[in-house]
Amino acid sequence: MDQVLSFISPDVSPTMLGVSAILCGFFLYTVTKMFGFGSRNKFVVEGRTVVITGGSEGMGKAVACQLAAKGANIVLVARTVKKLQGALDDVKASAANVNRQRFHYISADLTNAAQCEQIIEEVTEWNDGLPPDVVWCCAGYCNPGFFIDTPVQTLRDQMDTIYWTAANTAHATLKKWLVPVSPSEQKPMPRRHLIFTCSTLAFVPITGYVAYSPAKAAIRALSDTLNQEIEIYNGTRQSKSQINATPADVKIHTVFPMGILSPGFDNEQKMKPELTKQLEAADKPQTPNEVAKIAIAALERGEYLITTMFVGHVMKGTAMGGSPRNYTIRDTLTSWLSSLVFLQVIPDLRKQAWNWGMKNGIPSPNSE
């Protein structure tokens, strides 16, 4: 949003804010480099098995190709077999060593919890009896429109195809990962990763995404809750007493892209109200490869809430709330700056909507 960059509280000098932000960023970058923070890869995928839902196109396919290039075994999950087959060919072509790596696809409806459990069981059998090491939830689509013009069934469908596909997949995955083992069976294992794909609209909702934003906000709440709850199970592995423990530590992550150029985005643009396009003018869509590359780099640094561009980072800053921080000092400073910026941004968004109504009247479902 242009508002994020151009509207500053009149009581604060934009120059001072800009200089302070740059100096803080330079200081934190310098300290990070001097002391080697984040230099160890915390998301090693070579030789490990990764399941990617929504992996037949867009961001999911880009993630699959880039992880295959890093040596991962890839399982794609989506509904359409033809798309899955084509995507799997591209993934194989991206592989670091196609003779050593393994590739598989599964056609399934992720809104069905039973099918999600079947997916994890099938992957486990295919993976020589071991559950997947990484599960990345990318499934979902956006159906934009104004609230009273959106059928109630569409509101339900958006929650099903966005929130419930992620929740069902996470539930089936964690049930498999968190089965306790006895002290005699415990051995060192690499950390497992559960990754959600959300949206910056979970931080700052925009008019026209009334069916989409609540579902994405629900994913963020699920992620924050699991991020805390998973420590129960991680703690069992550090216990000094002889108790049953989970086989491996688990870490939760969530990625918050903005617009992503894809077939789904093109379809979304056809349905999107003109007011929505105006309000999100500063969202310069990224390619799936750009989003995947930035997200994977952040995972390798061990980040939890991951944004893929500066505007998204500022949006996250204003809505951190009780979410864990990636970097305590940097994220706190960003939160302070974002709060000042959004003193002007939110009223401006409401003002633009008001002006739109004054100029154009009540929107017609068929006019936009």
Rank of each mutant, 00 (worst) to 15 (best):
E185G: 09
I346W: 00
V210M: 03
R79I: 08
L178D: 07
W354Q: 15
G47I: 10
G25T: 12
V152D: 14
H104C: 07
L110Y: 08
I195M: 11
G361N: 14
A218Y: 00
A95P: 07
V63A: 09
G60C: 08
T161K: 00
A87G: 08
A69W: 07
D128I: 05
K351G: 04
K61Y: 12
I119H: 07
W164P: 01
T287I: 06
N99L: 15
V152H: 12
V179N: 12
V134N: 06
M320R: 10
P247K: 13
Q85T: 12
K351E: 11
A292H: 06
G25R: 11
S182C: 05
S107N: 07
V91M: 10
I296R: 00
S184K: 15
T53I: 09
A69V: 13
G129Q: 11
A297Q: 08
K33H: 11
L226M: 15
V204R: 05
T236Y: 10
I162E: 02
Q344P: 09
Q269C: 06
T15S: 12
F203W: 01
T15A: 13
T276D: 02
A353N: 04
Q85V: 04
I230Y: 15
T276L: 03
V44Y: 04
G54V: 02
L178W: 10
S213T: 05
T307W: 01
E231C: 13
P263S: 10
F265A: 03
I119M: 03
C24P: 06
A96N: 08
L155N: 10
L110A: 09
V291R: 05
E290M: 07
I296V: 13
V81P: 08
L23Y: 13
A93K: 10
N73C: 05
Y163K: 04
N360Y: 15
N99S: 15
D283L: 02
T318G: 01
V51L: 12
I362N: 08
Y304A: 00
R40E: 14
N326F: 00
K82D: 15
L340A: 00
K92D: 00
V31K: 14
V75L: 09
L222C: 02
G322C: 05
A297N: 07
V98E: 11
E268T: 00
S56T: 01
N244P: 10
G60A: 08
T150S: 02
V51T: 06
A297S: 10
R220N: 00
A248C: 09
Q3M: 02
W164E: 00
V210Q: 02
S241K: 13
S182A: 14
F103N: 04
F43G: 00
L340R: 01
T32D: 14
A68R: 11
E57N: 07
A319D: 01
I260Y: 03
T80M: 14
P190L: 12
S13D: 14
K175C: 15
K316Y: 06
P132K: 06
G36K: 10
V250G: 10
T53E: 13
C137A: 05
S6H: 14
V250E: 07
N168P: 12
Q344W: 07
S262L: 07
I162V: 07
